[in-house]
Nucleic acid binder design. Structure first.
Lengths: 235, 235
DNA sequence: TAGATTGTTAATCGATTAACAATC
DNA sequence: TAGATTGTTAATCGATTAACAATC
C-alpha cells in the first residue's frame, strides 16, 4: 500500500551529475534523441548500466526509439533537486572561497551566493562578486534571516570543525566542506566533502604505479633480449 | 616465477589517502600503535575492511599488537608514491589556479609548484606564491626543461581539451583537471578529474531527498493521528 | 510490418563482511 | 601462558553485465 521508497545506491547517485552534464551538452548540440548505446559510448559506461541507472527512477525511454534528450535532462534535473533554488554562504574568504564565489556555473544551476564570512578584519567589508564579506560573528543570524540552505566551508582545517559545530546549531540543510578533515555533523544535516588532497594523492598513486610498471618492463626486456634470447620466445 | 602483480581495485586506492590522513593525525597525537578495530571506529569503516585493504600490499601488522602507526604511515606513503618528488605547473591563473598555488599542503607532500601559465597578457608577469605567471606559449618548452611531472588544468571548460591536447604531445606524467569536462588524454598519461559541480549536485540530491522524506513523514502523521489513530498502532 | 531499443529478469562479477586459525 | 589482534579464507552482499521479451 505504502509506496516503497527503494534506496538508491550511492554509486548511482554519483553518476547522476555526469548524466546531467552530458545531456546538457547534447541539448546544446541540438541533439533530440539518444540511445543508451550511444550515450554509453560517449560516457564510457555500458548501455546496460545506463538503463539500469535510469530505471531506478522510472521508465524515461521508449522502446525502439531511445530517450528524448530534453525530457531526460529535465527528469534528471528534478531527481537532482535542481528544480529547487538554494541560498548559500561561503565561510572563509581565502583563495578557495573567492574562487567558489567567482564561479558562475553555480548560479546557473540555481545556487545563489548570499554572503561570505571571514574572521580576518582586513578582509571583512571587501566585496567579492557583488557580495560583501561579513564578520563570522554574524553567521548564525544571517543564516536565519536570509534562509540559507547551504554553507560552504573554506576555512583552514584547524577551524573547520568549530565552524561545523556552529552550523550544527542552525537549521542549515547542507554543508559542502573543502577543509581536509572529515567533519562530524548532525544526523539530519547533509554533508558533502571535497578532499582535494586525497584526489592529488590518488593521482600520485597512479603515476607511481605506472613508473613501477615501466621499470618492471625494462628489467624484463634486459633479461630476455641480450642474455637468453630464447627465453622470450614461446615454443 | 614472475611476481604476480595483482591489480588493486580503485575502491581500495581511493581509501589510501584517507588512511594516510588519519595516520598522520595519530602521529601528531603521539599515538604509537593502533588496532584495525580502533582505526575503523575513527574512520567509519569496518575493521575487516581495513585489514583486507592493507593486506593487498603486505602484512604490516603484528598479531596481538596491531599496527605501528609510524611504520604504517611510511608504508602507505610509499604505496601512494609520496617518496617521489613531483614538479608541477598550473595552467590557468584565475581564482582556482591561484587558490591551488597558494595552498601549502601540497609542497609538504612533495609536490613542487614550478610555474603558472595563462593566456591573459594582463596576468602574465605577475607573481603568485613566489612563482611567475608565464605565457602559455612557453608551456611545452618549460615542461621539457624543468622536468615537469604534473599539469593542473584550471582553465575554462571551453579551453580545457585544447590544453590537454598540447600536454598530450609532451612527456607529462599526470594531469589534474578542474575544468568541468571529461578530458581525453593519451593512454599512458594518468588523469585525475575533480568535478566540483558534480559534487555540488550530489549535495543537492541529498538535500532534496531529505526534503522529500520529511514531506512524506508529515503526510503520514496527518493521516494517522487525527482521523484514524488506530491505523498507526501495530496489533 | 520489421528493426530498434527499452525495461527487466537472471547471471556474473567483485567488494565487503564474517569467522577463525595463526601467532605475537 | 592467556589475551589480543592480525592475516586469510569463506560467506554474503551488492553492483554490473548479459540476455531477451515487450513494444514502439
Amino acid at each position: 500500500m505504502e509506496k516503497e521508497v527503494k534506496k538508491i545506491s550511492i554509486a548511482v547517485i554519483k553518476r547522476l551529475p555526469k548524466y546531467h552534464r552530458y545531456l546538457g551538452e547534447l541539448i546544446q548540440k541540438d541533439v533530440e534523441k539518444i540511445s543508451s548505446r550511444k550515450l554509453s559510448e560517449m560516457m564510457g559506461l555500458t548501455a546496460s548500466q545506463i538503463r539500469q541507472d535510469l530505471n531506478n527512477f522510472g521508465g524515461f525511454g521508449q522502446q525502439g526509439y531511445g530517450y528524448n534528450v530534453k525530457d531526460l535532462y529535465r527528469e534528471i534535473s528534478k531527481i537532482l533537486g535542481l528544480h529547487n533554488k538554494y541560498n548559500f554562504v561561503i565561510i572563509g574568504a581565502g583563495n578557495l572561497g573567492q574562487a567558489i564565489a567567482n564561479y558562475h556555473g553555480f548560479s546557473e544551476k540555481g545556487f545563489h551566493l548570499k554572503g561570505i564570512f571571514d574572521i580576518n578584519p582586513k578582509i571583512i567589508g571587501m566585496k567579492i562578486h557583488e557580495v560583501q564579506v561579513m564578520d563570522i560573528d554574524k553567521l548564525e543570524e544571517f543564516i536565519y534571516t536570509e534562509n540559507i540552505d547551504i554553507a560552504v566551508i573554506c576555512v583552514p582545517k584547524e577551524n573547520a570543525q568549530e565552524v561545523a559545530d556552529r552550523l550544527n546549531k542552525t537549521n542549515i540543510k547542507g554543508i559542502w566542506n573543502f577543509a581536509p578533515v572529515d567533519l562530524r555533523v548532525r544526523k539530519d544535516t547533509v554533508l558533502e566533502q571535497v578532499h582535494l588532497s586525497d584526489s592529488l594523492l590518488t593521482l600520485s598513486y597512479k603515476i607511481n604505479e605506472k613508473l613501477l610498471q615501466e621499470r618492471q618492463e625494462k628489467i624484463r626486456q634486459r633479461r630476455d633480449i641480450p642474455g637468453h634470447p630464447l627465453k622470450s620466445i614461446k615454443t
